[in-house]
Design a protein around this nucleic acid. Structure first.
Length: 468
RNA sequence: GGUGCGAUGGCCGAGUGGCUAGGCUGAGGUCUGCAAAACCUCCUACAGCGGUUCAAUUCCGCUUCGCACCUCCA
């Protein structure tokens, strides 16, 4: 089935086919490792995770690169304020970032290049831009990209260069640029940079922010590759400038498909560090939410729509996931280890519906609706005892197939713990009371089990005991 | 000022020119000694005003409101 994704460059949904070798080469803008990422940041990484999972679900290979921005104003400032080297400063946040990715069940990318390991590639790129007459040096030792000399600049953001004007945040423009839209390729060293600098043909300094992505993307993925993604706020200027640097150097198209996700909001406003209205993943986990629940909230909205983050949504996620768990528990009890057989008739078109949803611009909410319909029909069949063991096993396999994309069904799913002897004794005692129809004693024992952290549910097959 | 995006039932959140999204919550019901789980029903939604159409929540225009970007940003 065809994948159709929305391309920010053309502003239309387009059929996605790999440029080469049935493999999609994907560059995803990663974190600046100067503190802990917040869940708004992770919305982007989860969107990219869903993207790569959907590509794989379609039996297409993937090579994903996610950069780590480890040199910029914020990392330098952080290192200096702590009196440590840049490498030491970022180490904690790099490690935390990878831990957080695991907590959210985000699949690892193939490459995580750090900017500071690719200074030579960046210098080479600037050299090419000089050769092509697109770069110039200023008096302060910085190098700028001359936006006016590159035809087509603004094609991604659809901005008219003539109409670029300073927004609210640009009142203090201290750079020595020839023209307003020009951006730094290389920043000449100054005192604020401390020990952080590299030598270059233009003197000591450090790379401009946009440069690393162009240089590293081309190193790992080639001069032209399939897809490049990030948050919508990266569309301009960051991605526009990446295109300018890459295409200005090579003369070839840089990226075929650009995809951008909308922001996570809190009370209708963008979640951001500057507004202070953000939650880090670790904060939420400390409050008792699981990575699974947080992942569920973050995928249960279309990536191009702003998503309003609330604790009510986390509550709903917990209950919703429990419903899926109940269904899968019932199926696995029914399957009882049987080999996967035929799917029951009601599930005939389910996978097609799921695939249609995710292949239509990653419509995860639509895919989840398909999953919940299957949950309901499975429950009906199980409770009516109309399911064979082979069918139950086949349904389980189907849920697992969906989970290749969702990453939320089996991830961190509660496994039934062994029942301690003391608890089992109470359960046995309760069975006796029940057979004697001593409901008072039965209820008392249920309360006692609950007080000890175990729930008991009566069914035709007897008592079902679970850790709460 | 420029450029985009959006407004869906109590909450979240898809989608569609006519046919049930889905989840959560609330109410009622079936089952059960009770509870739980499961299932069923209901709370009959598409910002407002015009227009196109046999038919508009869906297409077009205007209005109102909101969000984002306009060189730190996921």
């Amino acid at each position: 089935m065809k994948m159709n994704f929305y391309n920010s460059l053309t502003r239309a949904k387009e059929e996605i086919t790999p440029l080469e070798d049935n493999r999609i080469r994907l560059y995803t803008c990663g974190p600046t490792v100067y503190n802990f990422a917040h869940i708004g940041n992770f919305r982007a990484y989860i969107f990219e995770d869903i993207l790569r999972r959907v590509i794989r679900f379609n039996r297409i290979g993937i090579t994903q690169v996610m950069n780590l921005t480890d040199v910029d104003d914020k990392t330098i400032r952080g290192a200096i304020s702590r009196g440590v080297s840049l490498k030491e400063f970022i180490a904690e946040f790099v490690q935390a970032f990878f831990e957080d990715l695991r907590k959210l069940n985000i699949e690892p990318a193939e490459y995580y290049p750090a900017a500071t390991d690719h200074i030579a590639e960046m210098i080479a790129l600037i050299t090419k831009l000089f050769d092509n007459g697109l770069a110039y040096k200023s008096d302060d030792g910085s190098v700028y990209f001359s936006v006016g000399k590159l035809p087509g600049y603004g094609k991604l953001a659809h901005l008219d260069r003539e109409k670029l004007r300073a927004g609210a945040r640009v009142s203090q423009d201290e750079y020595e640029k020839e023209s307003y839209g020009d951006f730094a390729l290389w920043k000449g060293w100054d005192e604020d940079d401390g020990e952080v600098y590299w030598d270059s043909p233009w003197g000591r300094g450090r790379p401009g922010w946009h440069l690393e992505c162009s240089a590293m993307a081309m190193k790992y993925l080639g001069e032209t590759f399939d897809m490049h993604t990030g948050g919508i706020d990266n569309l301009f200027p960051h991605h526009e400038n990446e295109i300018a640097q890459a295409e200005g150097a090579t003369g070839k198209p840089f990226v075929k498909t650009w995809m951008h996700c909308a922001h996570l909001q809190v009370n209708g406003e963008k979640m951001s560090k500057s507004l202070g209205n953000f939650f880090t993943l670790r904060e939420l986990i400390e409050k008792g939410w699981s990575g699974r629940e947080i992942r569920y909230v973050l995928i249960n909205g279309h990536y191009r729509q702003p998503l309003n983050f609330t604790f009510d949504a986390l509550d709903a996620a917990r209950v919703s996931l429990a419903r899926i768990d109940e269904c899968l528990d019932a199926l696995s009890a029914k399957a009882c280890g049987a080999a996967s057989g035929q799917l029951p008739e009601f599930a005939d078109r389910t996978e097609a519906g799921f695939t249609a949803a995710i292949n239509d611009d990653l419509n995860v909410p639509g895919a989840l609706a398909v999953v919940y319909n299957l949950v309901r029909e499975s429950n009906v069949a199980v409770h009516a005892d109309k399911l064979s063991a082979g069918e139950a096993a086949a349904l389980t396999a189907l849920f697992n197939r969906f989970d290749e994309v969702l990453g939320v069904i089996n991830f961190e799913r509660r496994v039934d713990e062994d029942i301690p002897c003391a608890i089992q004794a109470l359960v046995d005692e309760r069975a006796l009371a029940r057979s004697a129809k001593n409901w008072t004693e039965s209820d008392r024992l249920r309360d006692e089990l609950a007080a000890r952290g175990w729930s008991v549910r009566d069914s035709k097959e007897g008592q079902k005991v679970k850790k709460i």
